[in-house]
């Protein structure tokens, strides 16, 4: 396969996300710009300009109308997807680490970092109520005093948010009451990424403890573990195959201090049921920070510490391949 290389960022990529149909790919990086690309040919549709700090997270709603970004400039911004115009600006006390639209696209959540004397909050806004935006007053704000949230996604039916913490804990926060519905502590180190399966019944967590784990979204039951020998920065579940792709590598700060082995920067494919690795794709020359499957399962993208996003369309061999069990 010939990957399409997207060079829209000057610094390392922090998150990439497809919209629901997968025709658009959003990418954010530690520079201030959020990019949106046509995934089919890598053409850049536009950029969302306005942030003044590293952008940590991006999300797009169900009908690709609005885009949400959270940044280290202590703000979370809502954009019009088509024109790139800023619709809302929500100031926070500390950097916004994760953000997301619920299934309806009406409720947004974002979490802030424990930083500069402020603790970590998980905030919920209802976009149908302009007063909340104008007053910058979330209808629900959950403080997380112990360990900050490092990754979060909406659970099924918009009832709760699944949040991964820096100590490896995974919690379900109710979007209505704010209470913790369920807890799981299967990881020993920070959760770097959480991504749901296409039907939201499962999610995969990527952790610094060198593993990625598959969980049931509702019960938080631990289903599968995928082991590597490097911190996992991101993991995604294939929508059509029983496959999982993982990206990782050394921590960026360690790259220069240890011997260079390019092999560690590969995207690694695991069979979801057998927990066995069956394939690798090279390409990035730094750790992979984020991976995402196209919703049709026929391509996947990865964003790396090297600042590039690569869109890979799978070869036919990928679909023919069967793991010898």
């Amino acid at each position: 396969m010939k990957p399409i290389l997207l060079q829209g960022h000057e610094r390392s990529i922090t998150q990439i996300k497809y919209n629901r149909e997968g025709d658009l790919l959003f990418s954010v990086a530690k520079d201030t710009v959020a990019n949106v690309w046509y995934s089919v040919n890598g053409e850049r549709l536009g950029t969302y300009n306005g942030h003044t700090g590293a952008v940590w997270c991006v999300d797009c709603d169900w009908d690709t109308k609005n885009v949400l970004t959270g940044s280290a400039d202590n703000s979370c911004r809502l954009w019009d997807c088509e024109t790139g115009k800023q619709l809302a600006l929500l100031h926070t006390n500390s950097a916004v680490r994760t953000c997301g639209f619920d299934f309806s696209g009406n409720i947004i959540m974002f979490s802030t970092d424990k930083q500069m004397g402020y603790q970590c909050y998980l905030n919920f806004f209802d976009l149908r109520d302009p007063q909340q935006i104008d007053d910058n007053q979330p209808y629900l704000s959950i403080p997380c005093s112990d360990y900050k949230i490092t990754s979060a996604v909406w659970g099924p039916l918009g009832e709760f948010v699944i949040a991964g913490h820096e100590n490896g804990e995974i919690n379900q926060f109710s979007a209505k009451s704010g209470e913790i519905l369920k807890k799981a502590k299967e990881h020993t180190k920070q959760i770097n990424d959480i991504q749901t399966s296409v039907d939201l019944t499962m999610f995969i967590s990527a952790s610094k403890d060198n593993t990625a784990k598959l969980f049931d979204s509702t019960s938080l039951d631990h289903i599968k573990t995928f082991k590597t020998e490097r911190p996992v920065n991101s993991a995604a579940i294939s929508p059509i195959m029983d496959h999982v792709v993982m990206g990782g590598g050394q921590e960026a700060m360690e790259v220069t201090t240890t011997s260079t082995r390019i092999g560690k920067f590969e995207a690694r494919f695991f069979h979801a049921a057998y927990e066995e690795e069956f394939g690798r794709v090279k390409g990035h020359f730094g750790p992979i920070n984020c991976v995402a499957f196209h919703p049709d399962g026929k391509s996947y993208s990865s964003g790396g510490e090297d600042g590039y996003v690569r869109i890979h369309y799978f070869d036919p061999q990928y679909f023919d391949f069967e793991l010898e069990a």
């Binding site: 396969m1 010939k2 990957p3 399409i4 290389l5 997207l6 060079q7 829209g8 690309w37 040919n41 890598g42 053409e43 850049r44 494919f269 690795e277 069956f278 394939g279 690798r280 794709v281 090279k282 390409g283 690569r310 890979h312 799978f314 070869d315 061999q317 990928y318 391949f321 793991l323 010898e324």
Partner: peptide, 14 residues
């Protein structure tokens, strides 16, 4: 902003 990079192949571990 968009280039096509060199061919890469998935290395299968059978």
């Amino acid at each position: 902003t968009t280039t096509v990079s060199d061919d890469v192949f998935m290395t299968f571990i059978s």
